[in-house]
Write a protein that binds this DNA or RNA. Structure first.
Length: 592
DNA sequence: AACATATGTGGCC
DNA sequence: TGGCCACCCTATGT
């Protein structure tokens, strides 16, 4: 296209096109030089980019027409270079070819052509075959391996949204926890704000705790005044399941009565309030060790705190209460990760109460002996290439370890009594860090007797019948196979937080502000009680919906349920995708 | 529909 | 150590 000219009263407009050679008119774009623009020309659409008109106008002497250059060159929004574009083409995301693969982080290819791309058996780096004959390996092979069922049962995948609370939390969900005895109760924590830039923030922003009976969708409660900051972790009190402990970035552990919402502070690491970001302590990883009657919690400076129970506490009272005299003392803290680095996860071994697993931003997961907890005394250090988001012992035997790291790899160690030099497997999986998302954490299925199945949300989307959906992946950690990827066309958001029910075939997932409960689609219980499947929209949207349609029935459930299903047939046809070979057909339910 | 914006943090120098 | 900055698949509100 030739440059278009107007009368002198108007700026001169120059339109730059991809096909044109270097333009003389553009004086300011250093970044727009035509080095690479001859590489790919097949793109159909072109981006329009406007130059800074004001600048041009100022430069031009009065009377002469200013020049506005409109560049129609394709510019990649990722690398800012012309010649190609990254971004969504329909529901498929096109990687920037100048960057390493978004999935496996290796250069030379893009996500679309990545050999690890959620293909069966891809992504797995098997452990090198070892020929050591250490006694523990021998014991492991003789005593533990024979107890593992040789034939893997079919997994039951909760793959259909059974009910949901939409816009339940005011900000993104950070953690989920099922009630230890009441099957229908789900707890959720959220963030209101992470960064404290002033004390005012501290006063205004709240971390919330939600309690939801997902069999009775309306029975829900959000307590908003417990924490002044993001709730990072929650655990039920092992001797009184009417109370929970929550660790927060406000530096406190609260003990919350679920009935009343009243809370008391177990520990406060910021007793003097906001003194600036360098001294503000935040609590992330937390776990209970009921055998030793302690709460373990770790902060953003690499330190572990152990809160002992008082001997005189009875079982009916709050079991674990910090001694106020020892409270606030950093002398009680044990440095378990690199000084100044965040400890993001703690997990007590379910079988061996003396074993503790920690993970943090120093790229390590570490195994500790509770009887000898001091800086540098870890039993094992498990190195990772990047930050470790989570590390969990396997739920039944406590023998395996599963970690999620920010290098887009899940790592599995098959036996903590075996060789821990290198992970038994590395599974490439998309769960990148993003500042707007709660970090992804792969979690074991507590019901899998083989301790193989894990659930983890996926970052990169899948083009599923034209919709870009972010599935929740079920991965067989024994071989890296993708057992199932579940998604719903109505859920277009990423679900970084997922929890499998300890007893039922139920998956809870948290995506931004909403919670979803998934059940197996073929489960007769669900199918027989279809009327119980409910989607509840909370907050503003509920009001907005009511405003919109004046003839709404009083029954919120019907209305909202209908609203969710309004995409009708699409929902049916898109319902979800489960790898056919592995999904459990009716009647082949795994016996547990 | 097109935007503005919130505001974390790992990595690197 | 501190400071700077990129950050690619956000989500929401206006």
């Amino acid at each position: 296209m030739a440059p278009q000219t107007r009368r002198t009263a108007f700026p001169k407009v120059v339109i730059e096109r991809e096909t044109e050679s270097e333009q003389s008119s553009s004086s300011s774009d250093e970044d727009d030089n035509g080095e690479e623009n001859d590489s790919e020309e097949e793109m159909a659409e072109e981006k329009v980019e406007e130059e800074d008109a004001n600048e041009k106008e100022e430069k031009n002497p009065k009377g002469k027409a200013p020049i506005i250059t409109i560049s129609l060159k394709k510019v990649c929004k990722v690398c800012k270079k012309p010649g190609h574009e990254a971004g969504f083409k329909g529901a498929t995301y096109i990687d920037c070819p100048m960057k390493p693969c978004f999935l496996c982080k290796l250069p030379g290819h893009t996500t679309m052509s990545c050999p690890h791309r959620v293909a069966i058996e891809h992504g797995v780096v098997p452990a090198p075959r070892r020929s050591n004959h250490r006694p523990l390996d021998y014991v492991f092979q003789r005593q533990i391996v024979p107890k593992i069922p040789p034939i893997k049962p079919s997994y039951v995948i909760p793959n259909q949204v059974s009910c949901a609370v939409i816009r339940y939390h005011s900000r993104r969900v950070t953690c989920l926890e099922f009630h230890p005895t009441k099957n229908n109760i789900l707890l959720s924590g959220d963030k209101s704000t992470d960064l404290l830039t002033s004390f005012l923030d501290l006063l205004q922003k709240k971390g919330q705790v939600g309690i939801w009976d997902f069999e009775k969708v309306h029975e829900k409660m959000v307590y908003g005044n417990i924490h002044t900051c993001i709730v990072n972790n929650m655990r039920f009190n092992p001797v009184n399941d009417g109370t929970i402990y929550a660790a927060s970035s406000d530096g406190t552990i609260s003990c919350i009565d679920l009935e009343t919402g009243l809370s008391s502070s177990l520990m406060n690491l910021n007793p003097n309030g906001w003194q600036g970001p360098n001294s503000w302590r935040m609590l992330y990883g937390m776990d209970m060790n009921s055998e030793k009657r302690v709460v373990l919690v770790a902060d953003n400076f690499g330190f572990l705190y152990i809160i002992h129970s008082k001997a005189e506490d009875t079982e009916t009272a709050i079991l674990l209460r910090v001694d106020t005299r020892s409270n606030h003392k950093t002398g009680d803290a044990i440095m378990i990760h690199k000084k100044g680095s965040k400890v993001v996860g703690l997990h007590c071994n379910p079988v061996h109460p003396e074993l503790l697993l920690s993970c943090g931003n120093d790229h390590f997961a570490r195994i500790w002996d509770m009887r000898r907890l001091e800086a540098g005394s870890s039993l094992h250090d498990l190195p990772h290439k990047r930050v470790v988001n989570s590390a969990y012992f396997s739920p039944t035997t406590g023998c395996k370890i599963l970690t999620t790291a920010q290098d887009n790899r899940l790592r599995v160690w098959d036996s903590i009594f075996g060789d821990l030099e290198s992970p038994s497997r590395e599974i490439v999986h998309s769960h990148d860090f993003n500042r707007h998302l709660t970090p992804f954490r792969a979690e074991w299925d507590p019901k899998d007797p083989t301790e193989s199945l894990a659930v983890v949300g996926r970052y990169i989307s899948e083009n599923f019948n034209g919709a870009a959906l972010h599935p929740i992946d079920f991965i067989d950690t024994s071989n890296g196979q993708l057992v199932a990827e579940v998604m719903d066309p109505n859920i277009t958001t990423i679900s970084p937080v997922n929890k499998l029910h300890p007893r039922d075939d139920v998956l809870a997932s948290g995506s931004s502000r909403s919670l979803f409960i998934w059940r197996p689609s073929w489960n007769p219980e669900v199918d027989e009680h279809k009327e119980e499947r409910r989607i509840l929209i909370c907050g503003n949207d509920e009001k907005r919906r009511k405003k919109k349609s004046g003839n709404d029935s009083d029954d919120d459930n019907d209305d909202l349920d209908g609203g969710f299903k309004s995409k009708g047939k699409k929902t049916q046809s898109l319902k979800l995708k489960v790898s056919a070979s592995k999904s459990a057909p009716p009647g082949r339910k795994l016996k547990r």
